[in-house]
Amino acid sequence: MLNEWLLNRARWLDSMAWSTDLHESLYMYAWVETTHVLTLTVFLGMLFIIDLRMLGLTFTGVPASKIADRLDIPMLIGMVIMVVTGFILYFAIPVRSTQSIWFRIKVVLMIAAIANAFLFRAKMKAAAGTWDLDPKPPKNIRVGAGLSLALWSGVVITGRTIAYDWFDCHKELPYFMYWAAGCVDEMAAFQ
C-alpha cells in the first residue's frame, strides 16, 4: 500500500522529462551532488562546533547559548542548500531512491535527528542562565549532543551508501530485504 503509493509517485516523477534530462546531463547532476556534499562543511561543520561545545570539548570559555545562537544562521543556510539539492538529487533518480534501503534508513535517521534537535534545543533554552558558563554542560545536554553527532553521522553514511547497489531490488535478496526496501514487484514474484 504505502510502498505501492510511493513507487507510483516515484514513477510519475521519473516520467517527467527533466528528471531524465538531469540524470543524463553531462555535468548538472555532478554539480548538484558536489554542492550537496560540500555544503556538509557548512551545515554539519556548524553543527559539529555547537555539539562539541555542548560536550565541553571546545569554546569552553564562551557561553554555550552564545555559540549555539551565533552559529544558528550559518547552519540553517547550509541546511536549506542541503535540503534543496537533496530534493533535486531525489528527483533525478526517483524510483531507485524510493526502493533503496539506504535512502529509507537515511530518512528515518533524519527524522530522529530532527526530533532530537528540537528536544535538545528546548533543553538548552530551559537551562540557559544556569549552566551557560560551565565549561562542561550537564549530562543530559552532553547525551543530546552525542546523540546528535551519532544520528547525523548515520545520515552521512547512509547517504553515501545510496550510491552502492548491494541491496538493489534487481539483486537476489531475502524476502525481508525486498520488504524493507519496498521492492513491490519482487515481493509479488516471491509469493
Binding site: 556538509l40 562543511t41 554539519l44 561543520g45 556548524m46 553543527l47 562546533i49 553521522s153 553515501r160
Partner: peptide, 20 residues
C-alpha cells in the same frame, strides 16, 4: 564506504573550523 564516510565527516569538521 565506512572509511569514506569518516573522510566526509572529517571534511565537515575541518570545513566547520575553517569557516568559523
Amino acid at each position: 564506504v565506512v572509511v569514506q564516510t569518516f573522510h566526509l565527516l572529517a571534511l565537515s569538521l575541518l570545513g566547520g573550523t575553517v569557516l568559523v
